[in-house]
């Protein structure tokens, strides 16, 4: 319905075909993203089953308060992103701009908090590398693997957020120039899918990394 007189690229017959193609393409892209992160989750699972104690001990060194706040921040950014998509369908330019900027700000807050957490890990010699030290020397080697995966997984997640930043800035520019309308909402919609995906990855990362051994 929102594709009534959208401009259609020359390879497509009509706006409906274009919209379907773009949507399918985005979902396929997300499918490959799942596999990409899947390799990390698998590695995480293998070593967790090999070294459950080290995982639990290493997990306790993470700052659960900051992690929890960050989870809330990120979920809120998904809400503002969803509102941006909603406004785009309605064609309300100022609302789109506002929600996009809010999403950008919340994403920035997430990365800022993440940076504080990273800095603390470096200070405590928990970054895997030649200076790595762990309070319990008996668990040092597997804890180092845990922290390798912690940095690899959250780092890859953060990289995806940085890419998301670029896309959001581009969207803000498009919107400001009046290039996003109810008929041309696809860019906002597709960015929304991407942003929610990155959010969902964190929803898995948070319990897997921060909450080990805290249940019961």
């Amino acid at each position: 319905m929102h594709s009534h007189d959208a401009p259609v690229a020359h390879q497509f017959d009509d706006a409906g075909q274009q919209q379907e193609a773009v949507t399918l393409g985005m979902w396929l892209f997300l499918a490959q993203e799942i596999l990409f992160f899947g390799g990390l989750f698998l590695t995480y699972a293998v070593y967790r089953s090999l070294y459950p104690e080290a995982y639990a001990a290493a997990s306790h060194e993470l700052d659960i308060t900051l992690g929890g706040i960050n989870t809330a921040v990120l979920i809120t950014s998904s809400l503002t992103m969803a509102m941006a998509v909603h406004s785009a369908h309605a064609g309300r330019r100022k609302a789109i701009l506002g929600w996009l900027v809010a999403t950008l700000a919340l994403g920035g807050a997430f990365l800022g908090i993440k940076a504080v957490e990273y800095a603390a890990k470096f200070e405590h010699h928990l970054f895997p590398g030649p200076h790595f030290q762990f309070p319990d020397p008996a668990l040092a080697a597997p804890a180092r693997i845990y922290y390798s995966l912690y940095f690899a997984m959250t780092g890859m997640h953060a990289l995806h957020m940085v890419i998301g930043f670029g896309i959001l800035l581009w969207l803000i520019w498009l919107t400001a120039r009046g290039r996003i309308t109810a008929q041309r909402a696809a860019p906002v919609e597709m960015t929304g899918l991407y942003w929610h995906f990155v959010d969902i990855v964190w929803i898995f990362l948070f319990p897997l990394l921060y909450l080990i051994g805290r249940h019961g």
Partner: peptide, 24 residues
Amino acid sequence: VLGTPIIAITIVLVGLERIFGMGI
């Protein structure tokens, strides 16, 4: 689409291992 991302992330891990000595 479904296979290539796995080797991509695997290669990233090899690279990180080489640079930081992660131990994975």
